[in-house]
């Protein structure tokens, strides 16, 4: 599932894996994943010019979604 995928990636990249939380918002046609990490780790999941966030989104869009819904990722700080 996409949630687990984002969680695994985020926990692998941050200093404080305990602080990683993901809120799943199911909509009719889309699923929104809200990723929250420790304040000091925000940069580690976004990256310079958003490169890391963009890579995670690319990976998400290439996942085989069982539901066929669009999945979007939002990083909250």
């Amino acid at each position: 599932m996409e949630r687990d995928l984002v969680e695994y990636i985020a926990k692998s990249l941050v200093d404080d894996p305990q602080a990683v939380t993901i809120n799943v918002i199911e909509q009719e046609r889309a699923t929104i994943l809200e990723l929250r990490v420790a304040q000091e780790d925000v940069g580690k999941v976004i990256g310079k010019h958003g490169r890391i966030a963009k890579a995670i989104r690319t990976i998400l869009s290439a996942s085989s979604t069982a539901s066929g819904k669009r999945v979007s990722l939002e990083i909250l700080d």
Binding site: L13, I52, A55, I56, T58, I59, A62, S64
Partner: peptide, 24 residues
Amino acid sequence: SIIIGKKGKNLDALQLLVNVYAGR
């Protein structure tokens, strides 16, 4: 083919993440 993606887009994204992880 899907792991590589169009013009290697997915493979590049995966590679970037692996490199960030190597940095970690």
